[in-house]
Amino acid sequence: MALMICRDLSFAYGGETVLRGVSFSVEPGDYLCIVGENGSGKSTLIKGLLGLKEPAGGTIELSGGLERREIGYLPQQTALQRDFPASVFEVVLSGRLNGLGRRCFYSREDRREAERNLERMGMLELKKRCYQELSGGQQQRVLLARALCATGKLLLLDEPVAGLDPVATGEMYNLLKLINLCDGVAVVMVSHDVEAALRYATHILHLGHEQLFFGGVADYRRSDALRRLRGGC
């Protein structure tokens, strides 16, 4: 059973349609990369999937017991966060916010879960460190641990390797693949890096103000959409 089915989605800013005709589905265990040039509507789509932006048309259907607030989101980092005084643990713990319900404070279980996810990222010993003192790769792993605190089913990532050096980029991709394969968490990722997408993903969604391709990686390798994207680079 699919986790998420989108049918004929479109998005508009101030009456001007920026993205149209997007239809795809995400199954449990899928690894979907959303590719396309700058301004092709990738981040807009992510915002739509999260419910941060209302679609101008079409439907997003969540099923398989997935609720919208149970999507683990890893946003693009903002300049604001880079000098935010927060400990690593505070940041990761905030991922448990969606399970808080009517409670005011985090329970012992929330804390354990946050520690468990830090450990999965190999970051447990940095728990007390300040978030802003970490390297870019470490910061992304903290945000990934936070996203994992929020979900066991679906991760949505917006350019998770932007600004990382090659080593940290490789580590991030491997971690994501590991989570995807071992824990069966579906991954939906916006990416600039088509080659990495081809290597790690199971499915590709190619956008250019409209849907240019959706399907398996093997089909995408033979598609016109990929040829045009590579030709345009």
Binding site: P75, Q81, G95, Y106
Partner: peptide, 16 residues
């Protein structure tokens, strides 16, 4: 907890 989340990362807080 909510004030921290909204201050640190509003998009994430809204998404959850």
């Amino acid at each position: 907890p909510r004030i921290f989340a909204v201050t640190f990362d509003e998009d994430f807080a809204r998404a959850t």
